[in-house]
Amino acid sequence: MVRNRFEQVDELQPDAINLTLVQKSDGQVGIIHCPKTASPTLPADLTSEEMPIRDAVSGAIELANSKKIAIVVIDGDNIWKKEWGDLWRYDEGED
């Protein structure tokens, strides 16, 4: 079975579903943000409430599949688990 691959970024991207993972004092949460610029069918930018991290990951995947939009992950706290898929970072290389 092919594993899902997700690009790690440092800031919100206008052309993708943005999944932000955050470590809080009482646990880990996820936030899903889908800008209107990522899908012309959206009436406005959509941002979820904080939710349990597993729900955020599965919710972002469901939204991405239904809207046919890529997902990017903002994970400044290094929360990502390998069981969710492969997290990679774009490397522009040296000039």
Rank of each mutant, 00 (worst) to 15 (best):
S48F: 07
A60Y: 03
L19R: 06
Q23R: 15
N18L: 08
M51N: 01
T37E: 11
T41E: 07
T47H: 03
I17V: 15
V29E: 08
T47E: 13
L63D: 07
I17Q: 10
N18P: 08
S48L: 05
G30Y: 02
A60I: 06
I53F: 08
S48T: 15
L63N: 09
D45N: 15
S39F: 03
K36S: 09
M51S: 05
E49T: 12
N65W: 10
P40W: 10
G59I: 04
C34H: 09
A44N: 03
T20V: 15
A44W: 03
I32D: 00
P43R: 06
S48E: 09
V29F: 08
T20N: 10
E49C: 04
M51H: 03
K24L: 14
P35E: 05
N65F: 09
R54T: 11
A38Q: 01
A56N: 12
E50P: 13
V57Y: 08
L46G: 10
I61H: 05
P52M: 03
D26F: 15
T41Q: 04
P52W: 01
I17M: 11
Q23A: 15
Q28I: 15
S48R: 06
E62T: 14
C34W: 10
S25Q: 09
K24W: 14
P52C: 02
Q28T: 15
L19S: 06
H33N: 13
T37F: 03
A60R: 03
I17R: 07
H33R: 13
R54F: 02
S39M: 01
S48N: 09
I32W: 01
Q23M: 03
I32T: 00
S25F: 05
P40I: 12
D55V: 10
G30W: 00
G30D: 02
C34G: 08
H33G: 04
D55R: 08
D26Q: 13
R54V: 14
P52R: 02
S48D: 07
E62D: 12
P43Q: 06
L21N: 11
A38K: 00
